[in-house]
C-alpha cells in the first residue's frame, strides 16, 4: 500500500495536503450521530433509512413500509410519533413508486424526518410543545415538497400540451409510419391533444401555420391511401 515514489515532492505534497485537508481528531459524521441504542425500537428503521440513501430498490422500500407499519401499530396511542411515522410512510411510498425518478428532495426529506423523529424519540426532557414544533417543521417541509412535485407535474403537462410547431412536424412524420387503417378511430385523449395543438395555431407565424397545415394534410392523405390499399387488398 505504500507509495514507491517517496521523495521530496511527495513530502511537499503531503505537507500541503495536510494544510488543506488536515482532519486531526475528526471522527466520521455517521459514527458521531450513531446514537441509537442497540435495543432501541428505531434501530431497524434507521438502518433502512440509511440504506435508502444508498440504494432505492423494491426490497429496501418494502422493508421501510413494513417497518413503519409495525411502528405505527406499536405507537398508535402517541399522536406525535404516529404523525411522524405517517409522514415517513407517505414519503417512503412516494419514493417506492417513483424510485430513481423521485424528486431529489424526497430522500432528503425522508432523512430529515427520520432525524427529527429520532430527536423527539430519544431526547430526554423534551417537552410536548417542542415535540409538536419539531413535527410541524417536518410537516411544513412535506407540504413544500408536495407543492414542488405538483408544480413540476403541471409544468411538464403544460410543456407536453403546448408543443412548438417545429417539433410537431417530426412527431407527425413518425405517426405517419405508424398509421393503420383504423387511423380515424383515435383514442379521445389524442384528439384532445390535437385540438390543443390546433388552438396553438392562432399564436403561430403564418409560415409556421402553413408548415403545420401541410404536415397535417400529408398525414391525412397517407392515411387515406393506406386505408384504400387495405380495402383493395381485402
Amino acid at each position: 500500500m505504500d507509495n514507491k515514489n517517496d521523495g521530496t515532492v511527495t513530502d511537499e505534497v503531503q505537507s500541503r495536503l495536510e494544510d488543506l485537508f488536515g482532519e486531526s481528531g475528526k471522527a466520521s459524521v455517521y459514527m458521531e450521530d450513531s446514537s441509537v441504542p442497540e435495543d432501541s425500537p428505531l434501530r431497524i428503521l434507521k438502518g433502512i433509512v440509511l440504506s435508502v440513501d444508498w440504494e432505492i430498490d423494491d426490497e429496501v422500500m418494502a422493508k421501510l413500509i413494513e417497518e413503519i407499519g409495525r411502528l405505527e401499530h406499536t405507537y398508535k396511542d402517541d399522536k406525535t410519533l404516529l404523525s411522524f411515522f405517517r409522514l415517513l410512510g407517505s414519503v417512503g411510498k412516494y419514493i417506492k413508486t417513483r424510485k430513481a425518478d423521485a424528486h431529489p428532495d424526497a430522500i432528503k426529506l425522508l432523512n430529515s424526518t427520520y432525524n427529527s423523529l429520532e430527536k423527539v424519540f430519544l431526547s430526554k426532557g423534551i417537552t410536548q410543545a417542542e415535540k409538536k414544533e419539531t413535527l410541524l417543521a417536518q410537516v411544513k417541509e412535506f407540504k413544500k415538497l408536495k407543492e414542488q412535485i405538483a408544480f413540476k407535474k403541471a409544468d411538464t403537462a403544460k410543456k407536453e400540451e403546448v408543443k412548438p410547431p417545429k417539433e410537431t412536424k417530426p412527431v407527425i412524420e413518425k405517426q405517419e409510419k405508424d398509421v393503420v387503417v383504423q387511423a380515424e378511430h383515435r383514442p379521445p385523449e389524442e384528439t384532445e391533444e390535437e385540438l390543443l395543438l390546433r388552438s396553438e395555431m392562432s399564436r403561430m407565424t403564418p409560415q409556421e401555420a402553413l408548415a403545420y397545415v401541410l404536415a397535417e394534410l400529408k398525414q391525412v392523405i397517407r392515411a387515406e391511401f393506406k386505408a384504400l390499399n387495405a380495402k383493395l387488398k381485402s
Binding site: M1, V9, Q14, F21, K26, S28, V29, Y30
Partner: peptide
C-alpha cells in the same frame, strides 16, 4: 494498489483516499 475501507456518506477515509491518490499522482 493501495486500498481503503470507507464510508463516503460519513466521511470515513474519504480524505485519506484523496490524499493518497494525489500524492501518488504527483510522484508519478
Amino acid at each position: 494498489v493501495p486500498s481503503f475501507e470507507a464510508s463516503a456518506l460519513a466521511g470515513t477515509n474519504v480524505v485519506t483516499t484523496m490524499k493518497k491518490i494525489i500524492t501518488m499522482t504527483m510522484a508519478s
